[in-house]
Design a protein around this nucleic acid. Structure first.
Length: 622
DNA sequence: ATAGGGTTAG
């Protein structure tokens, strides 16, 4: 009798590859993967011991489930399965899915390892890696991969371009990427366009960004917001607001992103009333963290820390930006102690920016000891932190300590640091040190306007008119111009601007009545508040009467007078000034707030002054 | 299977 001989395993035990035989298991795996990943993977283990290769859909479904369940361990098991089963190389699209999974789990290096050994990389593989790197702020690597991709002969698509644009490190790179986009006609894609607009704006070429925007046949909300936020961030709030209303007229609804950009524009322009209006539109998005943070910042920077506090207390979710915004916002509004208390209550780890706000609060509250303690708690202090400390020591009159600190500090001694010291020299009338520091600044940057002014002011304080003339002459020779004092106030839906001695938005006649109001106020505070003009703030060597005359027309006085004339009794007067408020105006406004029984808020170049009942929130320490 | 915009200091 012939014996039947078997070679290897019996035929019925052969790896089954047909759809019919595996389909029950496949269905089991897919069904499991929705609620029980471990069970599903165990089923895969069984398949493997049976030498049954699951079909791609099974893997695809499993990977998706792992991502959804945020289960990286199971993800790794599926990954191993994919490559272990009998040496076959998985389909590229499956490996791409594995890449995507690791990227989602923030494991770019793991993704990279898989990517590097992929035999066939397609557009998706490359794009997944490039966008992973750009999202992790590793743009350099993203660009490198983009170049490698080109060399490997794979054509980028719109997905690739919109990702790689965000990795660009300067205008040169942007235009280098822009060229091929135009060449292959991918600039019609809205994603590519919004990336282009954003990245042009980011590197300071808003004009090119606007050009990309302007020639678009079809736009969507994101494209609109890209250009709006570009202008808002560039400090061009008026253009941003104008574009926003155009967007609304074009029929687009205001979503979170758009409202956030509009708020930023309001913040930049210090438009509190408009900001409030935006707030009412924002209640639809009550829980949007970014929008809330923008609102906090708007209220703080528009001088209403009360509104900011109220919103902050109601916010369900707060991140480090919310806390940092509130801390420095309170400090900018003279609520330094509260700022520091808030910092003590903060449940999150402070970052670089948080500590800038904390030190700012210490320096404006004159808390030297506390400032030192906080400074020493920073593990890796940077330029801004050193700057705050110089400010802190200088303001407190510890000029020697400030000099010592600068000498010993482990960071570049730039113009900002020296300017901070120079302004302390002026406050504490140290003419000698001012001369040295001023010269130092002008060596670093001969066209530094602020240093010239500070220096000449310091000399003027101590009546060294010869030196004042010297500095003024040097400014003239260098063509350095003093920025004229300028104040503005929001009345109705308009902004009224006042420059020294006049107005840029009112007629001559209207100015006459504003001047009359200033005179009336001066009389009133002189009689009822004992106001004496402090002519030491007039910096030219002229007769006393002439000095008094010139003080009258400081822009902040005009703006305050205008506000009192135009706004209802129940409204606070809110004025913004481009330079620092002068000492005479500071005293004057304190008295006006008292005799007129009004709350007056002036934001100068550095911070807010809240005047009420004859005192200022800064405690005259500024 | 891969893509775009919005928030804190200076």
């Amino acid at each position: 009798m012939m014996k039947r001989s078997f070679v290897g395993k019996p035929t019925w035990w052969r790896p089954a590859t047909t759809e019919i035989q595996i389909s029950p298991i496949r269905e089991f795996v897919i069904r499991c993967s929705n609620h029980d990943i471990h069970g599903a993977i165990s089923a895969m283990d069984i398949l493997q011991t049976l030498h049954i290769r699951a079909d791609p859909l099974v893997y695809s479904s499993l990977i998706k489930s792992c991502i959804e369940a945020r289960d990286i361990h199971s993800g790794r098991r599926v990954h191993r399965h994919l490559f272990d089963s009998d040496g076959n190389i998985p389909a590229t699209f499956l490996i791409n899915q594995v890449l995507g999974m690791y990227v989602r789990f923030q494991r770019v290096e793991e993704a990279r390892q898989v990517f590097d050994v992929m035999p066939e990389k397609n557009v998706v593989s490359w794009t997944t890696m490039i966008s992973a790197y750009t999202n992790m702020k590793r743009g350099r690597m993203g660009l490198e991969l983009f170049v490698m991709m080109g060399r490997s002969g794979v054509m980028p698509n719109m997905y690739t371009f919109s990702s790689v644009l965000r990795a660009s490190d300067g205008l040169e790179t942007v235009s280098m990427i822009h060229c091929p986009i135009v060449k292959v006609g991918l600039d019609s894609d809205v994603f590519v366009r919004s990336s282009l607009i954003d990245v042009y704006a980011k590197w300071g070429d808003l004009q090119s960004g606007f050009y990309v925007f302007d020639e678009m046949p079809t736009r969507d909300l994101v494209v609109w917001n890209s250009i709006i936020s570009g202008y808002a961030q560039d400090g061009n709030g008026h253009v941003a607001l104008d574009l926003y209303s155009k967007m609304r007229r074009a029929g687009f609804p205001a979503n979170q992103g758009a409202l956030t950009s509009v708020l930023r524009a309001c913040t930049g322009l210090t438009l509190l009333e408009m900001g409030r209006q935006v707030h009412t539109h924002s209640i639809k998005f009550l829980t949007d963290l970014i929008l809330n943070n923008a609102l906090l910042d708007m209220y703080c920077k528009c001088g209403s820390s009360e509104d900011a506090t109220c919103l902050f207390d109601r916010m369900v979710e707060k991140d480090i930006i919310s806390w940092s915004t509130m801390i420095s916002g309170l400090a900018q509004n003279g609520r330094n102690v509260e700022a520091l208390e808030l910092f003590d209550r903060m449940p999150l780890k402070p970052n670089y920016i948080t500590m800038v706000g904390v030190l700012f609060a210490c320096s404006h509250a004159g808390l030297v000891e506390k400032g030192w303690r906080h400074f020493n708690s920073i593990s890796n202090p940077g330029r801004e932190h050193y700057g705050c400390m110089v400010d802190l020591l200088g303001r407190a009159g510890k000029l020697d300590d400030a000099v010592k600190f600068i000498k010993e500090m482990n960071c570049e001694k730039d113009v900002v640091i020296w300017k901070s010291l120079l302004s302390s020299c002026r406050v504490h009338k140290d003419v000698e040190l001012a001369g040295i520091v001023g010269r130092r600044i002008l060596e670093l940057n001969p066209d530094e306007e602020g240093a010239h002014i500070l220096l000449s002011n310091t000399y003027a304080d101590s009546q060294q008119w010869e030196k004042v003339r010297e500095v003024r002459w040097e400014m003239k020779a260098r063509g350095v111009k003093k920025e004229p004092g300028c104040s503005w106030i929001e009345v109705g839906n308009r902004i009224e601007t006042f420059i020294v001695g006049g107005s840029s938005t009112r007629t001559h006649q209207e100015m006459e009545s504003v001047s009359k109001e200033v005179v009336r106020l001066i009389d009133r505070v002189t009689n009822e508040g004992g106001y004496i003009p402090d002519t030491s703030f007039v910096l030219h060597d002229v007769e006393v009467e002439q000095k008094k005359e010139s003080l009258k027309y400081h822009s902040e006085k005009l703006a305050v007078a205008f506000g009192l004339m135009m706004l209802g009794k129940d409204k606070d007067i809110r004025v913004i000034k481009n330079l620092r408020i002068c000492g005479d105006c500071h005293n004057f406004v304190k008295l006006v707030a008292m005799v007129e029984r009004r709350k007056i808020v002036i934001r100068d170049a550095v911070r807010f002054h809240h005047f009420q009942h004859g005192v200022c929130s800064c405690g005259d320490y500024w």
